[in-house]
């Protein structure tokens, strides 16, 4: 701990804040994705103005189910006929009181895991898709913290 004037606590705090923020963001990222406001864009916005709560719940579930006859878009976005019917199935099941999990389980029992647009976060899925990138990011942030400190503390090269 040298008394170098240029090493102030503020930058270190800034890095810790960045770390903490990253943790917070990742953790709450799940909340954002599960909210009933997920639309076809990278930044979910406010809930779509819908004519009923049932519509809103249908939409929020429909964006998580893959259109079986399209290329990777959800049954909410797809203009195809089958997707429309699948949306109706979702709406009927919601109206009958089924939970989101039960409806997803129904479709998985018919189509396989493939019908879910986001793999179930358990087992290998969880490890590879979620834990691995999170670790890389957090590790990288920590690494930068260490590197910057080391590179700032290094004495000036004599020849320079």
């Amino acid at each position: 701990m040298s008394a170098a004037r240029h090493r102030r606590p503020v930058p270190a705090v800034a890095i810790h804040i960045a770390l903490g923020a990253a943790l917070l963001f990742f953790a709450s990222g799940s909340a954002a994705a599960q909210g009933d406001s997920l639309r076809t864009s990278p930044v979910p916005g406010t809930p779509v103005i819908s004519d009923s709560a049932l519509e809103a719940r249908t939409r929020s579930l429909a964006v998580q189910l893959r259109c079986a006859v399209c290329q990777g878009i959800s049954i909410q976005e797809s203009p195809s006929g089958l997707a429309g019917e699948m949306r109706e199935v979702v709406k009927e099941m919601l109206r009958a009181g089924k939970t989101e999990e039960e409806i997803k389980a129904y479709f998985v029992s018919k189509y396989g895991e493939w019908i879910l647009l986001e793999p179930k976060p358990r087992g290998f899925n969880l490890l590879f898709l979620y834990v691995f990138p999170t670790l890389v990011l957090l590790g990288g942030l920590a690494g930068i913290g260490v590197l910057v400190r080391r590179w700032s503390a290094a004495p000036a090269p004599p020849a320079a």
């Binding site: 923020a21 963001f25 994705a33 997920l38 990278p42 964006v63 895991e113 986001e118 793999p119 899925n125």
Partner: peptide, 30 residues
């Protein structure tokens, strides 16, 4: 991942917008 999951778990999975949104939002906001 669909390729990897099929190789490792033998199951077809889809990775679509919900996953990418969830994981990339924090990074993009930063």
């Amino acid at each position: 991942y669909p390729l990897i999951a099929e190789a490792v778990r033998g199951v077809k999975v889809s990775v679509g917008e919900p996953y990418f949104d969830r994981m990339s939002l924090p990074v993009l906001t930063l």
